[in-house]
Computed example of a mutant assay.
Amino acid sequence: MRRRRNVEGFSLSFLDCISCGFGAILLLLVLSKIYEPSVIEKSEEDLDALIALLEAELFEIRGDTAVLNRELVSRREETTETRMTLAQLQRELDKVQGQYALISEDAPALDVDEGELEAARQRLTAEMRRLRPNFRRAPDDSIGGIPVDSEYIIFVIDTSGSMQAKWDWAEEKLGEVLDVYPTVKGLQIMNDNGRFMFEQHGRTWLPDTPQLRQAIKSTMRQWAPFSDSDPSDGIAYAIQTFWAPDKKISIYVFGDEFQGQSMEAVLRDIDGINVEDEDGNRLVRIHAVGFPYSFSGSTIPQSSQRFAGLMRLLCERNGGTFVALTNRNR
Rank of each mutant, 00 (worst) to 15 (best):
L117E: 14
Q122S: 12
A120N: 08
R132Q: 12
G145D: 02
G115N: 13
A109Q: 11
N134H: 13
V112M: 15
Q88F: 01
E127Y: 15
I153L: 13
R123L: 11
I103E: 06
Q122V: 02
T85Y: 08
R137C: 00
Q122D: 10
D113V: 04
N134R: 15
P139N: 08
T85A: 09
D158E: 04
E114K: 10
D113F: 03
D94I: 09
R129G: 02
D141A: 05
P108Y: 09
A107D: 15
T159W: 04
G98V: 06
Y100Q: 15
R129P: 00
L124P: 03
E92R: 14
P108G: 09
A107S: 14
E114F: 04
I103H: 01
E92G: 03
P147D: 07
M84L: 12
R91P: 00
A87I: 07
V112G: 02
L89I: 07
E118F: 08
Q97W: 04
A126K: 03
G145K: 03
D140R: 12
E92W: 05
G145R: 03
A107L: 02
Y100S: 12
V156L: 05
A138I: 02
D94W: 05
R130F: 14
M84V: 09
F135D: 02
D149S: 14
P108S: 11
Y152F: 14
D111M: 12
M128V: 08
R123K: 07
T85K: 12
P133R: 08
L124M: 08
G98W: 06
I154L: 08
Q122N: 11
A119V: 14
G145T: 03
F135C: 01
A101P: 00
M84I: 10
A126Y: 06
D113R: 04
L86P: 00
M128P: 00
V156D: 04
G115R: 11
E118L: 13
L110F: 04
R123P: 01
F155M: 04
N134F: 15
Q90K: 08
I157F: 07
T125L: 14
A107P: 01
A87T: 12
D158Q: 05
S142E: 02
R137W: 00
E151I: 00
R123W: 03
P139D: 11
L93I: 05
M128Y: 01
Y100H: 13
I143V: 14
N134T: 12
L131Q: 07
K95I: 13
Q90N: 09
E114R: 10
G115P: 00
R137I: 00
A109P: 00
A107Q: 03
I154K: 00
T125Y: 11
P108H: 10
S150Q: 06
P133N: 07
A101V: 08
R83V: 15
I103Q: 05
K95W: 09
L124K: 10
A138E: 10
P108F: 10
